[in-house]
Amino acid sequence: MITKQLAEEIVEQTMIRLNRNLNVMDTNGIILASGETERIEKIHEGAAQVAKTGETLSIAEDDLTEWQGVKPGVNMPIYFQGKLVGVIGITGNPEELKEISTLVQLTTEMMVHQSLITSHIEWNRKRNELIFEELTSGKPLSAAVHERISQMGLDGKISYTTLLIELKKTPSPSQRIVEQVEGHFHSQTVVAGHSQLNEIFLLAANEKPAELEEKLYTLLHFLQKTAPGRIGVGVAVNSIFDVRTSYLAARNALEFGKPDQQLIYFEDVELMALLKRNPQDDLAKFTGRVLTGLNEPLCQTLTQYFACNKNHAETAAQLMIHRHTLSYRLKKIKDITGLDPSEFQDAVVLHLALTIRK
């Protein structure tokens, strides 16, 4: 059904080009919009007849007595996807309107199609965002979402992976980015939309790890050209009702991944996420106890040492110091903390303390 707002837009845009009065009527023959504003919301019996028969009706001067609320002109049905949604009428001598009437009908149907398709897409997007919001809220799902999940066939035993795409800035138009992101996953996309202003979510189904990674790198390459950002990848779950677990994992990936890291899997930050769930006071006590006495240069040395997998030559090269200087610093760290960076167990404690401190 054509809305009043759409009818007004059709009349305004078409009359500018046509220089003739137009009326747009609903399927009951009520005039929704017209260049002659006094006729709005009145019955147009000719339009009602067109809506009933689905056929164009021309009304000449001699025919006015047969119809109520009409003027000479041509009234044509408007279809959308094979269904009659309204009537468009052009005021004037039907003989003079023969050449332009079909063009006006075609143009109107194109405008209706564009508007209704856009509205349908927007409605679907909002519905998807509502479904995702409920799935990840941790609260019981509404009956409407349960029904929609069943209609979409998502309650079967297949795997789902949540992707959170954090954009550096809001792209314009942002909705186009969502559509392009969906396009990278084709039929594997379950739902997609905005979870936050600068963040897009996508729930993908049945993606194999290797294929998923390939698509993600392709997507990152695309984003660098349009809306630079990074992607947090959640764990795969085997039920749509466990999507919250995948979502929280993707959220942790973004939260605990390095700022300059573009693709972050939850597995990369899982240990840090587990540790960060402890009270901050306890974490501060741990890092304070382990690292007390170490100045910033020694902490930087230790960080680089672990980044180089405890390789002395590589660490010294990265720090641009002599290997003897590195050995001296590592010994000093051992003397201060009582922990030997070269020993596995001690290195784990030092590494965790440095990581949590950041």
Results as ranks from 00 to 15, higher is better:
Tyr247Thr: 11
Val290Ile: 15
Leu294Thr: 04
Glu267Val: 08
Leu302Gly: 08
Leu298Met: 14
Leu275Ser: 12
Glu296Phe: 04
Lys276Ile: 01
Glu270Asp: 10
Asn278Leu: 15
Val269Met: 06
Leu283His: 02
Lys276Arg: 14
Thr303Pro: 01
Arg289Pro: 04
Met272Thr: 10
Ala250Tyr: 09
Leu274Pro: 00
Asp268Ala: 12
Ala249Asn: 15
Leu298Glu: 13
Thr303Asn: 09
Leu271Gly: 14
Gly288Tyr: 03
Leu275Ile: 14
Val290His: 09
Ala273Asp: 07
Asn295Val: 00
Gly257Phe: 01
Gly257His: 02
Leu302His: 12
Asp282Pro: 00
Asn278Ala: 15
Glu296Ser: 09
Leu263Cys: 07
Leu271Pro: 06
Pro297Leu: 05
Thr301Ser: 04
Gln280Ser: 10
Phe286Lys: 04
Leu248Pro: 03
Ala249Leu: 15
Cys299Tyr: 03
Ala284His: 01
Thr303Val: 02
Arg277Cys: 00
Asp281Tyr: 00
Asp282Met: 06
Asn295Gly: 01
Asp260His: 13
Ile264Ala: 07
Phe266Asp: 08
Asp268Val: 01
Phe266Ser: 03
Phe256Ile: 08
Tyr265Phe: 13
Glu296Ala: 09
Leu294Phe: 06
Gln300His: 11
Ala284Ile: 00
Phe286Ala: 04
Lys258Gln: 07
Gln300Asp: 11
Glu296His: 07
Tyr265Met: 02
Gly293Arg: 05
Lys276Leu: 06
Gln304Tyr: 03
Leu248Cys: 00
Met272Lys: 12
Ala253Arg: 12
Leu263Ile: 05
Thr303Ile: 05
Leu298Arg: 15
Thr303Leu: 06
Arg251Leu: 11
Arg277Lys: 13
Met272Asp: 00
Thr287Cys: 03
Tyr247Ile: 12
Arg289Lys: 15
Arg289Ser: 15
Glu296Asp: 12
Ala253Asp: 11
Arg289Tyr: 14
Glu296Gly: 01
Tyr265His: 13
Arg277Gly: 09
Thr292Ile: 05
Met272Leu: 13
Ala250Arg: 08
Leu302Gln: 11
Gly288Gln: 05
Gln262Ala: 11
Tyr305Ser: 07
Gln300Val: 06
Thr292Tyr: 10
Gln300Met: 09
Gly293His: 03
Thr301Trp: 02
Val269Pro: 07
Leu248Tyr: 05
Gln304Pro: 02
Ala273Leu: 03
Phe256Ser: 06
Arg251Lys: 13
Ala249Cys: 14
Pro259Gly: 08
Thr301Phe: 01
Thr301Val: 10
Tyr265Ile: 01
Asn278Tyr: 14
Pro259Gln: 09
Leu298Thr: 14
Glu267Gly: 04
Leu254Asn: 09
Cys299Asp: 02
Glu296Ile: 08
Gln262Lys: 15
Phe286Cys: 00
Lys276Trp: 05
Asp282Lys: 06
Ala253Tyr: 11
Pro279Asp: 10
Pro279Cys: 03
Ile264Val: 15
Leu291Gln: 06
Asp282Cys: 00
Leu298His: 11
Leu298Trp: 11
Gln261Ala: 04
Leu248Gln: 13
Ala253Cys: 11
Leu275Phe: 15
Thr292His: 13
Thr303Lys: 10
Gln304Lys: 12
Leu275Thr: 11
Lys258Thr: 02
Ala273Lys: 08
Asn252Leu: 05
Asp268Lys: 08
Phe286Ile: 05
Glu296Leu: 10
Arg289Glu: 15
Tyr247Leu: 13
Asp281Gln: 06
Leu291Ile: 03
Gln261Val: 02
Ala273Ser: 12
Lys285Trp: 04
